[in-house]
Design a protein around this nucleic acid. Structure first.
Lengths: 148, 148
DNA sequence: TTAAGTGCAAATATTTTGCTGTCAC
DNA sequence: GTGACAGCAAAATATTTGCACTTAA
């Protein structure tokens, strides 16, 4: 029997609590969507899903909460090569950065984790004496099925 | 004594000619700006500079030409970590991809070329059987001066 | 209690599109 | 001559903001 949602705040809400960031009903709904989303939501999708939990959630609250999450370093903002317009996509920042590949033909999004990527970031930090906060590698091209 | 501009078409215009893409007065102005730009123009800056060469250039022609240049693989589109709003920046695609680093404090944009980046792309192509057309690595953080 | 957060509506910012007239080839 | 391209204005898309009301702590 799963615990009720209120007893499973999730990491995002826990982070807010630790930092003394106020947790409102609307933020709780938005965080819950971000926690449980499989992947890559844009602001409109996030709004729609959050409204199912709390119908009062407004579009501007979604944007304000996204800004907050970005500033806290809790989410990453992606373009996915602008395959579908200029909107942004958001996902929880996970333990390890990953590369996003977008197929220019079928639109499929793939992810890839690589030690070489970590090496590359290390090189940038050392050679450029640059302290990396956030990094984004997006690749456009053709996936295995589409380039056959 | 420099040659008149009409005898120095530049690579972008040459590419258009080779592919039989029509070269209009307006496109010539826009290409010339892209050729000679030091770095990273957004659409409005590009429009402003192109108008100095040909005052008739319209904003929509700039966007249409940018789309054409992107599709021809002649320019790269960047966000520069959205340090200044949601607009895009454009630069001529050079021989070799480079990484863009944006300082979150002073706004400085740095570039970095790395063999490791080439290795990483090779790994993606091989391990994911993904044919890369365009790639973009943007990093946000603090530059040497700002993280002292 | 009260500072922070919210909804709502309107404003901004950026990019795209429909249409009619023009020009490169 | 004609199909591709242009300017113009209006629309579309995405995001932000001002303000008065509400709420978490």
């Amino acid at each position: 029997m799963p615990l009720p949602q209120t007893e499973m705040p999730g990491r995002l809400q826990a982070h807010f609590a630790e930092r003394g960031i106020r947790i409102t009903q609307q933020r709780r709904a938005i965080l819950q969507v971000m926690e449980t989303a499989s992947k890559h939501l844009d602001a409109s999708q996030l709004l729609r899903k959050a409204k199912k939990i709390d119908a009062s959630v407004d579009r501007s609250t979604v944007y304000r909460t996204l800004r907050l999450l970005k500033r806290q370093g809790l989410i990453d903002e992606l373009d996915l090569m602008h395959l579908n317009g200029e909107k942004h996509y958001y996902e929880r920042k996970l333990n390890r950065d990953h590369i996003h590949m977008a197929c220019l033909r079928c639109g499929k999004i793939m992810e890839f984790v690589s030690d070489v990527f970590e090496t590359l970031k290390g090189e940038v930090e050392k050679d450029c004496r640059f302290h990396i906060v956030v990094s984004r590698l997006e690749i456009g091209g053709y996936c295995a099925s589409c380039s056959k």
